[in-house]
Design a protein around this nucleic acid. Structure first.
Lengths: 166, 166
DNA sequence: TCGATCTTGAAAATGAAATTCAAAATCGCC
DNA sequence: GGCGATTTTGAATTTCATTTTCAAGATCGA
């Protein structure tokens, strides 16, 4: 299930969007912040993707819905969403922070093509178990982990052929 | 085996340093670059650690041995070392690139305390096997992976007690 | 030794992330 | 509904690690 182009289909149902909005609103109230139209627009735009979005990419999408929303607001809202666990950062190690929505999704990991940047998601219970085991062993209270595999995907191998010498 | 303070003891033997230097020199020749005193000093300084060093941290250590060596040279040499696999980047996701020397060490992973930044190394064959399995399944030619666990270490939990609300 | 090529390192450039601040919006309260 | 304290917004600026530039110096094969 490659991540290449799936922008078109909305990823989650209207009820889920409403529920996510509820989670955000509850979080805002809890930490004494205010509900705004911008924050809702950004959340909805974010939920409506299945990509691993950088702040800039999300900003471009948000701008289509409301051109008056600025980059800074997207940046800050993304942090808010991460705070209430609606978004989580994914590390692709390309120097850019990326987020994906974590709403009703099984924990998963990524394999990233170092040539074209496309990625595959995969699942592994072993990794979850390992977090528990290692944490217990060294007496850490673990909160999360990060696991990525890097390589070159089949398409890129075909395209490049012998052009990989440099 | 905490990483907190082990700066003093040199981590590898003189023969190993020589061998590592051989690897670097061979790599330099292979890619048509030149052997320099700076590069050797930086390699030796780097090998003489067991920490996960940022470029800046290594620069400070190198400066003690030869104050004329500049940051840029350390930065570039670290990339060279990574090229010939004497160094490898470790991702602690704190916005700083860190390297550790990979000379004669088993592949390992890190568990990082998000409070104090200390880390524990651990080993897992499962993770290695997983890279193979997932790569085969999705037809990626895998080159490497990155696995970190985040949490709070015992010391920090004790220190902070109830001060973890904010 | 010569000279083509590479290296060095201070300085500048880059670029993502974070902060600033004045104008605008929110929301508890009456 | 409207007041007002507090928060938000977003353009602009700042920050900071990283990367590039470039002229002077070093390396190494012939």
């Amino acid at each position: 299930m490659l991540q290449k182009r799936i922008d078109d289909q909305p990823s989650i149902s209207p009820e889920m969007v409403r529920e996510a909005q509820g989670i955000l609103h509850q979080h805002l109230k809890k930490v004494g912040l205010k509900q705004t139209a911008q924050r809702d627009t950004i959340l909805r735009t974010f939920l409506d993707t299945r990509e691993h979005l950088s702040t800039d990419e999300l900003y471009r999408l948000v701008r289509k819905k409301d051109p008056k929303i600025g980059y800074t607001t997207v940046y800050r809202t993304l942090k808010l969403l991460a705070e209430c666990r609606l978004a989580s950062e994914v590390a692709f190690h390309d120097g850019i922070a990326r987020y994906e929505h974590q709403y009703n999704r099984r924990s998963h990991h990524h394999m990233v093509c170092t040539d074209c940047g496309s990625s595959v998601e995969f699942f592994s219970n072993e990794v979850e178990r390992l977090e528990q085991d290692i944490g217990r062993k060294y007496r850490y209270m673990t909160t999360r982990h990060s696991f990525q595999i890097y390589g070159v995907c089949e398409d890129c191998r075909k395209k490049n052929g012998a052009a990989r010498v440099v």
